[in-house]
Amino acid sequence: MLTIATLGPKDTFSDIATKQYIQAIQNKKPVQQAQIQYYGTLAQTFEAVGKECQLGVLPIENLSEGYVQVVLDQLLNTKLFVISELLLPIQFSFVGFCDELTQLTDLYVQFVAHGQCSEFINALEGVKVHNSQSNMESLILAEEKGESAGAIIPQHALSQVQNATIINNDVTNYANNQTRFLVISETPLDRVAGKEYKTTLVVNNKQDCPGVLGNIVSAFALQKVNLTSIMSRPTRSQIGNYHFFIDIDGHQEDSNIAIALSEIQATYDVTVIGSYIKAVN
């Protein structure tokens, strides 16, 4: 039985992404059985991989909000591997348990969803905003609070709402909002011929060398490697010292990527977190 860690409770976007991944692997190998194990925070979800679960599915990047920092920080020092990515459309709704929106005093919203619905939230006056760990937790907390409370939840969860008196079907800032999820594992997957790949790596700037970012970009540019994203994170050793989290097009075994990585590794500590099949929009 394959066990997969994800952010709970049921019907979070992480849960939906996990179920999509399970469907994809079962289409390739119908006998493969999988069970989802839910966790209360993203950090707990990540830490369960390789211990209580074989795989984990975690959000890494949102179209409007950028990287999910708690997951990014876990990846910077991990010995796990990224084996797949998924793209999931993300739309949010508001549900209120008061008769009128002007009676709303407390709003519950997941900490990442907060930024994706900021235009709606900022338009509210005199409302205390409570950040939760998951979208479904927001609904649970609002229902427990009762009258004068509301929650921002995934559109697909509206069917679970009871006793709401106000529903705004779409409070998302962007109509084409989506989140990228990574599947992480203890072991990497073998390369599949004929597939487009993406590689994720971390350059650890422990030596505090000058010009590290320019040297990295130059090494990839000389080999005509396309950098799809680069994100800096503090090393927490001193101000102004950063690690770099990088996504590139291609597989780490491609000759041009291997040459570029070899050049960078001559000066910096590089960890390749994984090469995996690129998700299609």
Rank of each mutant, 00 (worst) to 15 (best):
A151G: 03
V31Q: 14
L7Q: 01
V129D: 07
L213C: 08
D15G: 05
Y268P: 08
K29V: 14
I277L: 02
T199Y: 01
Q133P: 10
N131V: 13
G40R: 12
D99V: 02
V109D: 00
I264E: 05
L55W: 02
D247V: 02
E100Y: 07
Q54D: 15
A24L: 09
Q33A: 11
K10N: 13
Q133E: 15
M1K: 11
I216P: 00
G194N: 05
T235S: 10
T267A: 13
Y174S: 14
A34K: 00
V68T: 09
I246E: 02
S14A: 09
N204H: 15
L182D: 08
T235P: 11
Q265I: 07
P30E: 09
Y197A: 05
Q207F: 12
S275R: 00
S93P: 04
L101T: 03
N205H: 03
F244R: 02
N173Q: 06
L261M: 06
N256R: 06
A17D: 04
A279H: 01
V270S: 03
I140P: 06
A193Q: 14
R233W: 09
E253K: 10
Q74G: 09
K224R: 15
P59N: 03
L87Y: 07
I22D: 05
K51P: 12
R233I: 10
I167E: 03
N168P: 06
L87S: 11
G150C: 03
T179K: 04
A258H: 11
P30H: 03
V202T: 02
Y38S: 05
I277T: 07
I36A: 04
T187L: 13
R233C: 13
Y276E: 08
N122T: 09
L227F: 02
T271Q: 13
V49D: 08
L158F: 02
A221L: 11
V212E: 06
N281D: 14
N173S: 08
N122W: 04
L7V: 02
S255C: 11
N163Q: 14
K51L: 14
I60A: 07
N176K: 12
F13D: 13
N168F: 01
I257P: 01
N173K: 05
F120W: 01
I257D: 01
Y39L: 06
L141I: 06
T165H: 12
G214H: 05
Q91V: 04
G194H: 08
E61I: 11
S118G: 10
E100S: 12
T3C: 10
E186D: 15
Y197M: 07
S84W: 01
K19I: 10
I36Y: 01
H251I: 04
M1R: 10
T228V: 08
V203D: 01
N135G: 15
F97M: 03
M1V: 13
F111K: 14
L58E: 05
Q44F: 09
Q33L: 12
E143G: 04
A24E: 14
F245L: 05
K19A: 10
